[in-house]
C-alpha cells in the first residue's frame, strides 16, 4: 500500500520537450517499466505549440485538457520554467488533473500565493514546487529522485529537501527498512501540501507502519506538524530538522529556509516535536536510526 501514487496513476509531463522534462520522463518510464512490466503509465506530455509531435515515444499535446482527454492522465509532473509555472499548475487543475507535482525551482512567491488561493476551487492536490517529487517504490516514481535508492517498505517519508530525502532513504535501506511512499514537499515559503495532510494520509494507510519527517529552518510547518502528531497520529514518528548552525536572516539555498525575526529556528521545532513524542535525530547520520528507535519505543 501507499499514498498518492498507485497502480492507477497515469502521468503526463508538462514541459516534456525541455531537456530536464524529457530526461526525467524517460527515467520515470524506465522505473515504471521495471516495476509494472507491460504497463504504460507515462502517457505523454504537454508543450504548447508542439502538439502532434512525438518525443522518444511520448505523444505531445498542446493543452493539458487534450492530454487528459486522449490519455486518461490523472497526474502531472511539471518542469516548466519558473515564469510560466503558475499558469501550468492552474492549467493542470482546470483540466481535472488530481495530482500536480511541481519540480520547478524559483517560482515567485506572489505567483504561488495566487495559485494556492485559486486551487481551493479545484479537487486536486499540489506537491511542491521546488521538490524532488513523489515515489512509491516498486510502483512508480514521479520526479527526479534516483529510483533504486528507495526500496519498497513500510516507512512513510515526508521531506522539505531533495538530497536529504535520498540520504534518508539510503539510511533506511541500510537498516533494512523501505518506504511505502516518499514525498518531497519542497523548500519554498508557499507549497501545495504540507506535513499535516500527508501525516494524515500515512496514518490511514495500512501499508505504512512508521513515519519520518525531515524539516529545516524557516516557517512553522514542523511545529504545526508536531501539534498534529500529538493529537492525531498513533504511528511512530522519527524526525530530523536541518539548519541548526544557520545564521539568522540568511537564506540557506531554499527560498523558504530562512530564520526571520528570531522565528523558524531548529531548536523550537525540535522542542515541539520531542514534546509530541517524536524521536528526533540530532545528527543527519541518524535519520534512519531515529525511525527505528521510534518503532522500538
Amino acid at each position: 500500500m501507499s499514498i498518492l501514487v498507485d497502480k492507477n496513476t497515469r502521468i503526463i509531463t508538462q514541459g516534456i520537450t525541455g531537456n530536464a522534462g524529457l530526461f526525467h520522463a524517460q527515467q520515470c518510464r524506465i522505473y515504471a517499466e521495471e516495476c509494472q512490466p507491460g504497463e504504460n503509465i507515462l502517457v505523454g506530455g504537454v508543450t504548447p505549440g508542439k502538439g502532434g509531435q512525438e518525443v522518444d515515444g511520448f505523444p505531445v499535446f498542446n493543452t493539458v485538457q487534450e492530454a487528459v482527454e486522449k490519455t486518461g492522465a490523472n497526474t502531472t509532473m511539471i518542469f516548466v520554467p519558473p515564469p510560466f509555472c503558475a499558469d501550468a499548475i492552474l492549467e493542470a487543475a482546470d483540466a481535472g488533473i488530481e495530482l500536480i507535482i511541481t519540480i520547478t525551482e524559483g517560482i515567485p512567491v506572489m505567483d504561488m500565493a495566487k495559485v494556492k488561493k485559486k486551487l481551493e476551487d479545484y479537487p486536486c492536490r499540489l506537491i511542491g514546487p521546488n521538490c524532488p517529487g513523489v515515489i512509491t517504490p516498486g510502483i512508480a516514481k514521479i520526479g527526479i529522485m534516483p529510483g533504486y535508492i528507495h526500496t519498497p517498505g513500510k516507512v512513510g517519508l515526508i521531506s522539505k529537501s531533495g538530497t536529504l530525502t535520498y540520504e534518508a532513504a539510503w539510511q533506511l535501506g541500510n537498516l533494512g527498512m523501505g518506504q511505502s511512499t516518499a514525498i518531497g514537499i519542497g523548500g519554498d515559503p508557499i507549497i501545495g501540501t504540507n506535513f499535516i495532510d500527508l501525516l494524515d494520509m500515512f496514518e490511514d494507510d495500512p501499508g505504512t507502519e512508521a513515519i519520518l519527517i525531515i524539516g529545516e529552518i524557516g516557517g512553522t510547518a514542523e511545529i504545526d506538524a508536531a501539534e498534529y502528531i500529538k493529537e492525531y497520529i498513533t504511528k511512530p514518528v522519527g524526525a530530523f530538522i536541518a539548519g541548526r548552525t544557520a545564521p539568522p536572516g540568511k537564506r540557506m539555498g531554499h527560498a523558504g529556509a530562512i530564520i526571520s525575526g528570531g522565528k523558524g529556528t531548529t531548536d523550537e521545532k525540535i522542542e515541539a516535536l520531542e514534546a509530541a513524542g517524536v524521536t528526533v535525530a540530532q545528527s543527519p547520520a541518524d535519520m534512519g536510526a531515529a525511525v527505528k528507535q521510534a518503532m522500538e519505543k
Binding site: 529537501s161 538530497t163 536529504l164 530525502t165 523548500g187
Partner: peptide, 15 residues
C-alpha cells in the same frame, strides 16, 4: 549538493 544536505553538513561539523 542540495540545500538540505548542505545545511545538515554544517550541523554535522558543529556536532
Amino acid at each position: 549538493n542540495g540545500a538540505g544536505l548542505a545545511m545538515s553538513t554544517m550541523d554535522l561539523i558543529k556536532l
